[in-house]
Design a protein around this nucleic acid. Structure first.
Length: 495
RNA sequence: GAGGCUGUAGCUCAGUCGGUAGAGCAACGGACUUUUAAUCCGUAGGUCUUGGGUUCGAGUCCCAACAGCCUCACCA
């Protein structure tokens, strides 16, 4: 193990009178800021007749802190590259320049150590922007060797289990998660600017409603009560709409007891927003605004790379009806239930005893969704498959709902919210009757119906999958690339 | 939950027909005051994921378990 030599250096650092675990360190600039000061370097021309080989430079004095990610020891000279979350810069540590005390400390540096430096910002004779060290500070020892310096970590299992190593050393990982943070902040800003207030609903539910998914079960000891982790934010936010919070949103974690895939993690982050006196079209405009602002917040443009393709987010996003897209991508008339059933049978879908709209929806999922490179708003869904949505006055068979698809992925889902308590109760009952045995824990949320009976304003409601949005905006093909700690099985004992 | 692929040094990977373990980086020792994937000389590092089996002999073939990835199912 290499740990022994690192512990030996740790002991040496203590002998030299330094704390190998460091302490508060003030007054440093970020490496990004330091790099921006390159222009302050003044180069004096070599005087005529001088035998001086290199011109004298005067640069600003700077203080930096970071992790040593590369080191080149050259006798009485060390070049070390340190990195913080804003960038990376080279240190020049010369034995004659820093003195024996600092040199002795520098000899204890290993890759991965966190160090501080005071020095002058200048360029080396090859032109590399460099902090020429004058004083070194030890901030924290690393007892583990970093991963291979060219490739970093590539094994996805190690990357997810040891995300700290992945963030610290694998190129592009830290910036991606900083982008995620900017996207989330942007969403809050956009909603705030439009008068929405942020709330926190309960994550422990007595009835897990608001979506068609199986919940995680848990238990409260003192109350001896079964509980479920929430599968959606919807039903509590609508209660707040009843209470008079006219524009309300929650950005939070929901939990669904399902498998993992490149697009699914059992816990994921959802935005839900509700706007009193709006409808699904209001939410379409809001969705577009949220995404465009998020793109701007990451400093990107409308054309975003996605694998080998490009996604064009230039507004306005395309808007097409469900039936229109159904017919275009299946070649079958969206109103021809007989032909649709035949198509479903041909694909091998189970159709016996199913509602024609359900069959149509399954065909849509199999044949159409993958083709929607988008961004495209799909609007006006069959009412049968939308139990929480208001129907079109002109055509009760159609629900005022849209989903936003990009690269075949569903990113957002929005409704003109149903606020008729009697109809809502009836639709719930129909939905519960159709539940499979394994979903039998689903129950009628009587209190939600009671809330609607007190009068909920007509409203538009939006759900937006944050993880998937971040995937699209950061060119990440799996959801695990944008979730810091994705769910993994217990670590194998023999690793 | 089902199927397929993968698992070798701290990391990234080779390993032929079944014949007894290799490289680069990292580490350790040495040389080197403008390097930058530093270079050069030398050294050390392995329960080949785990457990069985076949065989004179298994990293290699077979079975099982564990973990990851992909596809499907569930779902957003």
């Amino acid at each position: 193990m290499h740990e022994a030599s690192r512990r030996e250096k740790l002991r040496k650092i203590q002998e030299l009178g330094h704390d190998p675990w460091g302490s508060r360190f003030d007054g440093q600039m970020s490496i990004g800021e330091i790099r921006a000061r390159e222009g302050e370097i003044v180069v004096e021309p070599i005087p005529a007749g001088s035998d001086q080989r290199e011109p004298t430079q005067h640069g600003p004095h700077v203080r930096a802190a970071g992790r040593i990610v590369l080191q080149r020891k050259k006798g009485k000279l060390i070049f070390a590259d340190i990195r913080d979350w804003s960038g990376q810069i080279q240190l020049f540590i010369g034995r004659g320049q820093v003195g024996e005390d600092n040199w002795a400390l520098a000899e204890c540096f290993d890759l991965g150590d966190l160090v501080g430096v005071d020095g002058q910002l200048k360029r080396t004779k090859t032109g590399e922007l460099t902090i020429f060290a004058e004083k070194l500070h030890f901030l924290s020892k690393s007892l583990e060797s970093p991963p291979e310096k060219h490739h970093g970590l590539t094994d996805p299992e190690l990357r997810h289990r040891m995300r700290y190593v992945d963030l610290a050393y694998t190129e592009g990982v830290l910036p991606r998660f900083l982008d995620r943070s900017k996207i989330v902040a942007s969403i809050r800003n956009t909603l705030g600017a439009q008068g929405f207030v942020e709330v926190e609903g309960p994550t422990l539910h007595t009835i897990a409603g608001g979506a068609a998914a199986r919940p995680f079960k848990t238990h409260h000891n003192a109350l001896d009560m079964p509980l479920f982790l929430r599968i959606a934010l919807e039903l509590h936010l609508k209660r707040l709409l009843v209470g008079g919070m006219e524009r309300v949103f929650e950005l939070g974690r929901v939990f669904r007891n399902e498998g993992v895939s490149p697009r699914h993690n059992p816990e994921f982050t959802m935005l839900e927003a509700y706007q009193a006196y709006g409808d699904y079209r209001s939410m379409m405009d809001l969705t577009e605004r949220l995404i465009l602002d998020a793109i701007a917040a990451t400093g990107r443009g409308y054309q975003l790379p996605w694998n080998d393709a490009t996604i064009d987010f230039t507004p306005p996003f395309a808007r097409h009806t469900y039936d229109e897209l159904f017919t275009r991508h299946t070649g079958v008339d969206a109103a021809d239930t007989v032909a649709i059933k035949k198509l479903a049978d041909d694909i091998g879908l189970e159709t016996a005893g199913k509602d024609p709209d359900v069959i149509k929806s399954e065909v849509f999922e199999h044949k159409v969704e993958d083709q929607l490179m988008g961004p495209v708003f799909v609007l006006d869904y069959p009412a049968t498959i939308c139990p929480l949505t208001k129907r079109k006055t002109s055509n009760p068979a159609v629900a005022e709902r849209f989903e936003l698809f990009v690269q075949g992925m569903e990113i957002a889902n929005a409704y003109t919210e149903l606020n008729d308590p009697d109809l809502q109760e009836q639709l719930f009952r129909t939905q519960l009757a159709g539940q499979k045995a394994e979903d039998s824990m689903a129950k009628m949320d009587e209190d939600f119906i009671r809330a609607l009976r007190h009068g909920m304003p007509p409203a538009g409601g939006l759900g937006l999958g944050i993880d998937r949005l971040v995937m699209l905006l950061t060119n990440s093909q799996t959801i695990r690339e944008v979730i810091l700690f994705p769910l993994l099985r217990t670590e194998a004992k023999n690793r």
